[in-house]
Amino acid sequence: MAADAHSPLAQFEIKPLLELHPFGIDATFTNASLIMVVVVALITLFIVAGMNKATIVPGRFQGMVEFFYEFIANLLQENTGSAGRKFFPLVFSLFMFILACNLIGLFGVFTVTSHIIVTFALALLVITIVTAVGFIRHGAHFCSYFVPQGAPMWLMPLMIPLEIISYLIRPISLSVRLFANMVAGHVMLTVIGGFVVGLNGLLIGFGVIPLAAIPLIFALEVLVALLQAYVFAILTCIYLNDAIHLAH
């Protein structure tokens, strides 16, 4: 269903920029692709520029880069211990990618993370890696993860399917959480922006009320953009910890 130009959903429309069909796969370069490329370039530029003249005593830029580095390093260390160190590039990339997509989206260009398929692919990547880590580290013993400890035997037929379902639902909740937050925020901003025009048409000067609300909602959306990237990263760490230490 195509939304018309003034619908709050028009901002999620994907516009093809360059048709590409290599090997019969639809790989059209779209505005979403453009933003993803820009995000990767920005993150790399950010770190390279910050680390360009790296000194023992960091400058402002280097301090920012190190802040992100140590933030994710501490997150990983606190949640998974030293065994999770080799997943640091993954968690860092995920966090920076989602954070940059969320924040760029707030500037009204395009929000990659407001597409369920993108967030779902990222969540599926996380869950696949977590499951693979679990099976590689513990082999078939990883299946004991689905058997809750301390539950009475006669409850097992109920508990084990529940555990499996809750495990399988993780990629869905992980992706829908990010997706819904982004969509809701952008729809709310657009709807309230529409109120400015609508209320002004009703009575001149009335549009000031929703106009005053927009900066507040924008600030909330900045918070949400940061929080959702953080939540995605911390949940990745928690899932990794479950798979590595099998403490359930």
Partner: peptide, 13 residues
């Protein structure tokens, strides 16, 4: 806050 808000947003979705 993020986790709770997400629960409500599932309904929004």
């Amino acid at each position: 806050f993020a986790l709770i808000e997400a629960t409500g947003l599932f309904g929004f979705v």
